[in-house]
Protein backbone atom coordinates (compact mmCIF):
# COMPACT_ATOMS: atom_id res chain seq x y z
CA UNK A 1 0.00 0.00 0.00
CA UNK A 2 1.41 3.30 -1.09
CA UNK A 3 -0.69 5.81 0.76
CA UNK A 4 1.79 7.51 3.10
CA UNK A 5 4.67 7.18 0.73
CA UNK A 6 2.32 8.28 -1.98
CA UNK A 7 1.31 11.40 -0.12
CA UNK A 8 4.92 12.33 0.32
CA UNK A 9 5.52 11.65 -3.35
CA UNK A 10 2.55 13.78 -4.24
CA UNK A 11 3.83 16.70 -2.25
CA UNK A 12 7.19 16.35 -3.85
CA UNK A 13 5.57 16.60 -7.27
CA UNK A 14 5.84 20.34 -7.91
CA UNK A 15 3.06 20.49 -10.47
CA UNK A 16 0.60 18.75 -8.21
CA UNK A 17 1.49 20.93 -5.24
CA UNK A 18 1.08 24.01 -7.35
CA UNK A 19 -2.22 22.73 -8.68
CA UNK A 20 -3.52 22.00 -5.23
CA UNK A 21 -2.47 25.46 -4.03
CA UNK A 22 -4.08 27.15 -7.03
CA UNK A 23 -7.34 25.34 -6.56
CA UNK A 24 -7.34 26.01 -2.84
CA UNK A 25 -6.68 29.70 -3.49
CA UNK A 26 -9.61 30.03 -5.89
CA UNK A 27 -11.83 28.15 -3.52
CA UNK A 28 -10.76 30.21 -0.52
CA UNK A 29 -11.21 33.50 -2.36
CA UNK A 30 -14.65 32.50 -3.53
CA UNK A 31 -15.70 31.40 -0.07
CA UNK A 32 -14.38 34.52 1.59
CA UNK A 33 -16.10 36.73 -0.96
CA UNK A 34 -19.31 34.79 -0.44
CA UNK A 35 -19.07 35.42 3.31
CA UNK A 36 -18.16 39.08 3.19
CA UNK A 37 -20.65 40.10 0.53
CA UNK A 38 -23.12 37.28 -0.01
CA UNK A 39 -25.03 39.21 -2.63
CA UNK A 40 -22.09 41.17 -4.02
CA UNK A 41 -22.13 39.45 -7.34
CA UNK A 42 -25.66 40.63 -7.99
CA UNK A 43 -25.21 44.21 -6.86
CA UNK A 44 -25.39 46.73 -9.67
CA UNK A 45 -23.32 49.88 -9.82
CA UNK A 46 -23.75 52.83 -12.12
CA UNK A 47 -20.52 51.94 -13.93
CA UNK A 48 -21.61 50.33 -17.18
CA UNK A 49 -19.01 48.42 -19.17
CA UNK A 50 -16.01 49.84 -17.33
CA UNK A 51 -12.52 48.55 -18.02
CA UNK A 52 -10.63 47.13 -15.03
CA UNK A 53 -9.75 49.73 -12.43
CA UNK A 54 -8.99 49.90 -8.74
CA UNK A 55 -12.70 50.04 -7.96
CA UNK A 56 -13.46 47.08 -10.19
CA UNK A 57 -10.33 44.95 -10.53
CA UNK A 58 -11.82 42.98 -13.41
CA UNK A 59 -14.07 45.68 -14.81
CA UNK A 60 -17.85 45.70 -15.07
CA UNK A 61 -20.42 44.40 -17.53
CA UNK A 62 -23.13 46.24 -19.46
CA UNK A 63 -25.41 46.72 -16.47
CA UNK A 64 -22.79 47.42 -13.84
CA UNK A 65 -22.03 44.06 -12.27
CA UNK A 66 -18.60 43.90 -10.72
CA UNK A 67 -16.89 41.20 -12.73
CA UNK A 68 -14.42 40.30 -10.00
CA UNK A 69 -17.22 39.33 -7.64
CA UNK A 70 -19.02 37.57 -10.44
CA UNK A 71 -15.95 35.55 -11.32
CA UNK A 72 -15.46 34.55 -7.71
CA UNK A 73 -19.08 33.56 -7.39
CA UNK A 74 -18.97 31.76 -10.72
CA UNK A 75 -15.85 29.87 -9.71
CA UNK A 76 -17.59 28.76 -6.55
CA UNK A 77 -20.57 27.51 -8.55
CA UNK A 78 -18.31 25.76 -11.05
CA UNK A 79 -16.42 24.10 -8.22
CA UNK A 80 -19.69 23.03 -6.66
CA UNK A 81 -20.76 21.48 -9.93
CA UNK A 82 -17.39 19.80 -10.31
CA UNK A 83 -17.39 18.43 -6.78
CA UNK A 84 -20.90 17.02 -7.03
CA UNK A 85 -20.11 15.41 -10.34
CA UNK A 86 -16.82 14.01 -9.12
CA UNK A 87 -18.33 12.45 -6.04
CA UNK A 88 -21.40 11.06 -7.77
CA UNK A 89 -19.66 9.81 -10.87
CA UNK A 90 -16.78 8.29 -8.91
CA UNK A 91 -19.03 6.52 -6.44
CA UNK A 92 -21.35 5.24 -9.17
CA UNK A 93 -18.54 4.33 -11.50
CA UNK A 94 -16.54 2.58 -8.78
CA UNK A 95 -19.51 0.63 -7.51
CA UNK A 96 -20.66 -0.52 -10.91
CA UNK A 97 -17.15 -1.11 -12.20
CA UNK A 98 -16.18 -3.13 -9.14
CA UNK A 99 -19.39 -5.13 -9.33
CA UNK A 100 -18.87 -5.89 -13.00
CA UNK A 101 -15.26 -6.82 -12.55
CA UNK A 102 -15.71 -8.91 -9.45
CA UNK A 103 -18.92 -10.72 -10.23
CA UNK A 104 -18.43 -11.24 -13.93
CA UNK A 105 -21.10 -13.17 -15.81
CA UNK A 106 -24.41 -11.51 -16.57
CA UNK A 107 -23.80 -8.70 -14.10
CA UNK A 108 -20.69 -7.82 -16.02
CA UNK A 109 -22.52 -8.06 -19.35
CA UNK A 110 -25.33 -5.86 -18.20
CA UNK A 111 -23.10 -3.20 -16.72
CA UNK A 112 -20.80 -3.29 -19.70
CA UNK A 113 -23.74 -2.76 -22.03
CA UNK A 114 -24.86 0.13 -19.87
CA UNK A 115 -21.40 1.59 -20.07
CA UNK A 116 -21.41 1.13 -23.82
CA UNK A 117 -24.78 2.79 -23.99
CA UNK A 118 -23.46 5.96 -22.46
CA UNK A 119 -20.14 5.84 -24.29
CA UNK A 120 -21.69 5.19 -27.70
CA UNK A 121 -23.91 8.21 -27.52
CA UNK A 122 -21.96 11.44 -27.64
CA UNK A 123 -22.28 12.82 -24.16
CA UNK A 124 -23.41 16.16 -25.37
CA UNK A 125 -26.65 14.84 -26.82
CA UNK A 126 -27.89 13.57 -23.50
CA UNK A 127 -26.93 16.82 -21.87
CA UNK A 128 -28.43 18.98 -24.57
CA UNK A 129 -31.70 17.09 -24.63
CA UNK A 130 -32.07 16.85 -20.89
CA UNK A 131 -30.73 20.28 -20.04
CA UNK A 132 -33.14 21.96 -22.40
CA UNK A 133 -35.92 20.62 -20.28
CA UNK A 134 -34.65 20.47 -16.77
CA UNK A 135 -32.54 23.52 -16.23
CA UNK A 136 -35.55 25.70 -15.61
CA UNK A 137 -35.82 24.25 -12.16
CA UNK A 138 -34.54 26.22 -9.23
CA UNK A 139 -31.00 25.33 -8.25
CA UNK A 140 -30.19 24.81 -11.88
CA UNK A 141 -26.53 24.25 -11.03
CA UNK A 142 -27.51 21.11 -9.16
CA UNK A 143 -29.59 19.88 -12.06
CA UNK A 144 -26.71 20.46 -14.42
CA UNK A 145 -24.36 18.67 -12.02
CA UNK A 146 -26.67 15.67 -11.78
CA UNK A 147 -26.97 15.52 -15.54
CA UNK A 148 -23.24 15.62 -16.05
CA UNK A 149 -22.85 12.87 -13.46
CA UNK A 150 -25.18 10.67 -15.47
CA UNK A 151 -22.83 10.76 -18.41
CA UNK A 152 -19.52 10.97 -16.54
CA UNK A 153 -19.47 7.70 -14.58
CA UNK A 154 -18.77 5.14 -17.33
CA UNK A 155 -15.13 6.18 -17.75
CA UNK A 156 -14.52 5.47 -14.10
CA UNK A 157 -16.50 2.23 -14.29
CA UNK A 158 -14.33 0.97 -17.12
CA UNK A 159 -11.11 1.82 -15.34
CA UNK A 160 -12.25 0.25 -12.08
CA UNK A 161 -13.53 -2.87 -13.80
CA UNK A 162 -10.18 -3.40 -15.48
CA UNK A 163 -8.33 -2.83 -12.20
CA UNK A 164 -10.58 -5.21 -10.29
CA UNK A 165 -10.20 -7.86 -12.96
CA UNK A 166 -6.45 -7.75 -12.59
CA UNK A 167 -6.58 -7.85 -8.79
CA UNK A 168 -9.23 -10.58 -8.55
CA UNK A 169 -6.93 -13.38 -9.53
CA UNK A 170 -4.17 -12.43 -7.10
CA UNK A 171 -3.31 -14.73 -4.21
CA UNK A 172 -4.49 -12.57 -1.34
CA UNK A 173 -7.96 -12.41 -2.86
CA UNK A 174 -8.15 -16.16 -3.36
CA UNK A 175 -6.89 -16.55 0.19
CA UNK A 176 -9.66 -14.33 1.52
CA UNK A 177 -12.19 -16.28 -0.51
CA UNK A 178 -10.86 -19.52 0.85
CA UNK A 179 -11.23 -18.13 4.39
CA UNK A 180 -14.91 -17.59 3.64
CA UNK A 181 -14.96 -13.78 3.69
CA UNK A 182 -18.12 -12.23 2.24
CA UNK A 183 -17.82 -10.87 -1.31
CA UNK A 184 -18.62 -7.34 -0.13
CA UNK A 185 -15.87 -7.54 2.47
CA UNK A 186 -13.40 -8.84 -0.07
CA UNK A 187 -14.30 -6.06 -2.48
CA UNK A 188 -14.01 -3.30 0.07
CA UNK A 189 -11.08 -4.59 2.09
CA UNK A 190 -8.94 -6.44 -0.39
CA UNK A 191 -9.79 -5.38 -3.92
CA UNK A 192 -10.66 -1.70 -3.95
CA UNK A 193 -7.65 -0.42 -2.01
CA UNK A 194 -5.54 -1.85 -4.77
CA UNK A 195 -7.52 0.12 -7.32
CA UNK A 196 -7.14 3.45 -5.53
CA UNK A 197 -4.61 4.78 -8.00
CA UNK A 198 -6.76 4.49 -11.11
CA UNK A 199 -9.84 5.66 -9.21
CA UNK A 200 -8.10 8.75 -7.95
CA UNK A 201 -6.70 9.57 -11.34
CA UNK A 202 -10.01 9.15 -13.05
CA UNK A 203 -11.66 11.28 -10.38
CA UNK A 204 -9.44 14.21 -11.29
CA UNK A 205 -10.21 13.63 -14.95
CA UNK A 206 -13.91 13.63 -14.13
CA UNK A 207 -13.56 16.88 -12.29
CA UNK A 208 -11.89 18.66 -15.21
CA UNK A 209 -14.42 17.14 -17.59
CA UNK A 210 -17.29 18.40 -15.44
CA UNK A 211 -16.03 21.97 -15.51
CA UNK A 212 -15.53 21.85 -19.26
CA UNK A 213 -18.89 20.22 -19.95
CA UNK A 214 -20.65 22.80 -17.87
CA UNK A 215 -18.84 25.47 -19.88
CA UNK A 216 -19.82 23.82 -23.15
CA UNK A 217 -23.45 23.67 -22.08
CA UNK A 218 -23.35 27.33 -21.12
CA UNK A 219 -21.96 28.17 -24.52
CA UNK A 220 -24.90 26.37 -26.10
CA UNK A 221 -27.20 28.37 -23.85
CA UNK A 222 -28.12 25.31 -21.84
CA UNK A 223 -25.93 25.63 -18.76
CA UNK A 224 -26.63 27.16 -15.40
CA UNK A 225 -29.62 29.45 -15.85
CA UNK A 226 -29.79 33.13 -14.99
CA UNK A 227 -29.78 34.66 -12.45
CA UNK A 228 -27.30 32.06 -11.23
CA UNK A 229 -23.91 32.18 -12.81
CA UNK A 230 -20.87 30.02 -13.28
CA UNK A 231 -17.47 30.47 -14.84
CA UNK A 232 -18.73 28.66 -17.90
CA UNK A 233 -21.63 31.04 -18.23
CA UNK A 234 -19.39 34.06 -17.82
CA UNK A 235 -16.96 32.82 -20.46
CA UNK A 236 -19.77 31.88 -22.81
CA UNK A 237 -21.61 35.19 -22.52
CA UNK A 238 -18.33 37.07 -22.56
CA UNK A 239 -17.28 35.51 -25.81
CA UNK A 240 -19.11 38.00 -27.97
CA UNK A 241 -17.26 40.74 -26.13
CA UNK A 242 -13.79 39.30 -26.72
CA UNK A 243 -12.86 41.93 -29.28
CA UNK A 244 -14.51 44.96 -27.76
CA UNK A 245 -14.64 44.50 -23.97
CA UNK A 246 -11.93 41.88 -23.59
CA UNK A 247 -12.00 41.84 -19.80
CA UNK A 248 -15.41 40.20 -19.89
CA UNK A 249 -13.98 37.28 -21.79
CA UNK A 250 -10.40 36.90 -20.65
CA UNK A 251 -10.71 37.16 -16.87
CA UNK A 252 -13.28 34.39 -16.44
CA UNK A 253 -11.54 32.42 -19.19
CA UNK A 254 -8.16 32.61 -17.50
CA UNK A 255 -9.58 31.59 -14.15
CA UNK A 256 -11.41 28.71 -15.79
CA UNK A 257 -8.40 27.40 -17.67
CA UNK A 258 -6.24 27.83 -14.57
CA UNK A 259 -8.71 25.83 -12.53
CA UNK A 260 -8.76 23.00 -15.04
CA UNK A 261 -4.98 23.00 -15.34
CA UNK A 262 -4.72 22.81 -11.55
CA UNK A 263 -7.03 19.82 -11.49
CA UNK A 264 -5.08 18.17 -14.29
CA UNK A 265 -1.79 18.83 -12.49
CA UNK A 266 -3.13 17.20 -9.35
CA UNK A 267 -4.17 14.23 -11.48
CA UNK A 268 -0.70 13.96 -12.97
CA UNK A 269 0.80 14.16 -9.52
CA UNK A 270 -1.53 11.49 -8.23
CA UNK A 271 -0.70 9.28 -11.13
CA UNK A 272 3.01 9.34 -10.53
CA UNK A 273 2.69 9.32 -6.74
CA UNK A 274 0.33 6.38 -6.48
CA UNK A 275 1.78 4.37 -9.28
CA UNK A 276 5.49 5.03 -9.17
CA UNK A 277 6.17 1.92 -11.19
CA UNK A 278 4.74 3.53 -14.27
CA UNK A 279 6.64 6.73 -13.88
CA UNK A 280 9.21 7.68 -16.44
CA UNK A 281 12.72 6.77 -15.84
Amino acid sequence: MASTAGARQLLRHPGAALGACGLAAVFAAATVAGRIAPDGHRRLSADFSQAPSLRHPMGTDAIGHDLFLQVLHGAQKSLQVAMVVTVLATVTGTTLGALAGYRGGWVDSLISRLTDLVLTVPVIVVLVVAAARLREQRESWLVIALLISVVAWPQTARVVRAAVLSVRERTFVSAAQALGASPLRILVVDVLPNAVAPIAVSATLTMATAVLLETALSFLGLGVAAPETSLGRLVATGQSAAGTRPWLFYFPGIVLVTMCVCVAAIGEGLRSALDPGRDDR
Binding site: R42, L44, D61, A62, I63, H65, R135, E136, G221, L222, A225, A226, P227, T237
Partner: peptide, 13 residues
Protein backbone atom coordinates in the same frame (compact mmCIF):
# COMPACT_ATOMS: atom_id res chain seq x y z
CA UNK B 1 -37.15 33.40 -22.26
CA UNK B 2 -33.73 32.19 -21.18
CA UNK B 3 -30.52 32.37 -23.15
CA UNK B 4 -31.12 35.93 -24.25
CA UNK B 5 -28.48 38.14 -22.73
CA UNK B 6 -30.40 41.34 -23.28
CA UNK B 7 -33.45 40.01 -21.45
CA UNK B 8 -31.39 38.66 -18.61
CA UNK B 9 -29.63 41.95 -18.22
CA UNK B 10 -32.76 44.05 -18.26
CA UNK B 11 -34.32 41.68 -15.75
CA UNK B 12 -31.34 42.18 -13.44
CA UNK B 13 -31.72 45.93 -13.82
Amino acid sequence: IGGNQLREQQAEL
